[in-house]
């Protein structure tokens, strides 16, 4: 039949994007879309039943990711994606729950939730797009902003010491910690795929340009110029000690898989503890569809 000859070739990632919501809101040269491409490829390759995947975002430019993913997706409040995802995961442990948000959302207003979810080893994959600024509100200083660059609320350059997020996640107990830039699309997708197969608190930081605000205000050129910088100054160091991977303004960027270990998840611990305590009276929670 002639229909067989019709070109039916589609980019494989399209099936997982809400095409009725395109065009997206992100600026030309922004790296968030690149991370989404990596994420969707990772999911397609993961072998997960995608009906069981939920994506949860907070607020901000990266907070809009959930809205473009054609899966169960939840756009919550500023900084609170992790506790929403915690409730969702614990209510139905058969779900694979991914938190996808920005550095300001996750580490400033959401910082408390971040450290406690890592401490509990909550079974969540957290993707943090770090662009060193608050994009949605016009370029204010973030907890990740390195010393030096100008932001609207640091008009004479940032004098506040930044977080080293991989170190924070590691110190709090994350079982998997990796950092890549949006130049490293294959490595980032691979880390996400690996992260999806882990049980426990997974933290993946994706360094991404914000050409409209951070780059422009600091005369760093456009998106492509930042990619060149990522290419030239990234140093791959798998297994690096996370305390050594802090970032400086336009300095070297240590990338790689820093942490990969096993720890019982919060639910494993609860089920194990109650099984010992209550013996045969206790029915393992989360067996079939989280109903028990």
């Amino acid at each position: 039949m002639s229909d067989d000859l019709a070109l039916d070739i589609q980019n494989p990632v399209m099936q997982l994007l809400r095409q009725d919501r395109i065009p997206h809101i992100w600026c030309p040269g922004c790296g968030i879309g690149t991370t989404v491409n990596c994420f969707v490829r990772a999911m397609l390759e993961s072998g997960l039943n995608l009906d069981n995947v939920a994506v949860v975002s907070g607020i901000g430019c990266t907070g809009r990711v959930a809205g473009y993913i054609n899966l169960d997706s939840f756009h919550t409040t500023h900084g609170r994606a992790i506790p929403f995802a915690t409730g969702m995961k614990l209510a139905n442990p058969n779900l694979k729950v991914i938190v996808y948000s920005g550095d300001g959302d996750l580490s400033a207003i959401g910082g408390n939730h971040f450290i406690h979810a890592a401490r509990r080893n909550m079974d969540l994959m957290v993707v943090c797009v770090t662009n060193f600024t608050y994009g949605m509100t016009g370029g204010q200083v973030a907890p990740t902003t390195p010393l030096g660059p100008t932001q609207t609320t640091m008009p004479y350059g940032n004098f506040e010491n930044p977080f080293n997020l991989p170190f924070l996640a590691d110190a709090c107990g994350a079982v998997y910690v990796a950092r890549w830039t949006v130049f490293h699309v294959r490595q980032l997708a691979k880390a996400m795929k690996e992260g999806l197969s882990k049980r426990g608190f997974v933290f993946i930081e994706a360094i991404s340009p914000c050409p409209t605000l951070y780059s422009r205000r600091n005369r760093l050129g456009d998106g492509a110029d930042q990619l060149k910088y990522y290419k030239e100054r990234s140093i791959v160091k798998n297994g690096a000690d996370t305390k050594d991977v802090g970032l400086t303004f336009q300095g070297d960027i240590t990338v790689g898989k820093f942490v990969d270990r096993e720890r019982p998840t919060w639910l494993d611990s609860m089920n194990g503890h109650f099984s010992t305590h209550f013996k045969e009276k206790y029915k393992i929670y989360g067996g079939s569809h989280g109903e028990d």
């Binding site: 929403f84 409730g87 969702m88 139905n92 408390n112």
Partner: peptide, 23 residues
């Protein structure tokens, strides 16, 4: 399941996530 969250902000949204998972 019961979980003691890190604060009331977290508690009040954890329940919303759990509700959307069917509880």
């Amino acid at each position: 399941l019961f979980i003691q969250m890190e604060d009331e902000i977290a508690s009040s949204i954890a329940i919303l996530g759990a509700a959307w998972a069917g509880k």
